[in-house]
């Protein structure tokens, strides 16, 4: 049984377009996703593709419109508040900007102590010992106990946020662009820390990012999102070697290649992400796709399995041989 299974998740936001008229923006459009224990799933896509909304729905910070989120066998969307609160012991999130995600008036001891206070009976000395243990796990020390977030550097603050997420050894940790707000020099340190902690505690990550390089560093499997839909989902290594969906190809091509001997692919993204209020007909990607045909404009492709990978494109089989050269 997978740790987390998302089935046909939909989230629509009402957008008023006039005094009495409103339309629905489909931020998350029938998303299916499975996360196995011990695995790291990367979710990538441009900003506005719905990856953050997806995460907010599956942690039930906002209520999805429909679908199921099965976590350890229970549908989170069917739980009442007390059972949901108890269930939350097993999930945690690390946000992009630690200065916004750490309560500004609390000291490190209270920030990391909060999950322990909420879900365990640890108090006093034992609680502080556990807090220090977690600080040390992320490379900080007891010296930081009485500091507030604003007194820490970006990297240190993000480490505190990670220690806070880690404190209860949750089964699932969602990482929402955990390095995007940090200095480049610190990004690698934090990524390495995440890899180290995963090995040490057998953690399961759901890693959200717009940066493929960062995701490649961590993820076992990758889901690529475009305009609320998953367009490709498969093993990271294979996906990086050869994308099945044109959008993935374009994303891979847009990442700078440090090795000058490797010739960059010529697929480039043109135009910008269409509005969620007026998504293109048929395949959402067709206005920007170099291979788009009449069929793409008319008919929305389903996710199809191809070489052990899911991709949402009409022309996989037809196109694949042509792209090999």
């Amino acid at each position: 049984m997978p740790l987390l299974e998302v089935r046909s998740l939909v989230k629509q936001f009402p957008v008023s377009t006039g005094l009495f008229s409103r339309r629905w923006a489909q931020a998350v459009d029938h998303v299916d996703l499975t996360v196995n224990a011990g695995e790291t799933i990367g979710v990538v896509g441009e900003s506005g593709c719905g990856k953050t909304t997806l995460v907010r729905c599956l942690l039930r910070i906002i209520e999805p419109t429909s679908g199921q989120v099965i976590f350890e066998g229970d549908d989170l969307l069917g739980l009442d508040q007390p059972s949901l609160r108890a269930k939350r012991r097993d999930m945690a999130i690390v946000y992009q900007n630690p200065y916004l995600s750490l309560s500004p008036r609390l000291a490190v001891r209270d920030l990391i102590g909060e999950p322990l206070l909420t879900h365990t009976s640890l108090r006093g000395r034992a609680l502080i010992d556990r807090v220090v243990e977690n600080l040390e796990a992320v490379g900080l020390s007891a010296d930081h106990l009485n500091k507030r977030a604003r007194e820490l550097s970006g990297g240190q603050a993000q480490r505190v946020a990670i220690a806070r997420a880690l404190a209860l050894r949750p089964k699932l940790i969602v990482l929402d662009e955990p390095t995007s707000a940090l200095d480049v020099s610190v990004q690698a340190q934090v990524l390495n820390l995440l890899v180290k902690l995963r090995a040490e505690f057998g953690l399961t990550y759901l890693f959200i990012s717009h940066n493929l390089d960062v995701v490649q560093h961590l993820a076992d499997r990758i889901a690529v999102m475009y305009l609320g839909r998953i367009v490709e989902f498969g093993e990271a290594e294979k996906l990086f070697r050869r994308a099945h969906h044109p959008y993935t190809m374009a994303l891979l091509a847009s990442t700078p290649e440090p090795d000058p001997d490797i010739k960059e692919s010529s697929v480039a993204l043109e135009g910008s992400v269409p509005s969620l209020l007026a998504p293109p007909s048929g395949c959402h990607f067709h206005p920007r796709c170099p291979w788009a045909q009449d069929r793409c404009r008319a008919e929305s492709p389903a996710l199809r399995v191809e070489e052990g990978r899911l991709a949402r494109c009409h022309f996989l089989v037809e196109r694949l041989p042509a792209l090999k050269n």
């Binding site: 269930k87 939350r88 945690a92 999130i93 916004l100 750490l102 309560s103 879900h119």
Partner: peptide
């Protein structure tokens, strides 16, 4: 709506706290 409040909610901290 700030992340630090959301983060507490995700951890299962009750409304009063």
């Amino acid at each position: 709506e700030r992340p630090f409040v959301e983060s507490a909610r995700i951890m299962g901290v009750n409304g009063f706290t």
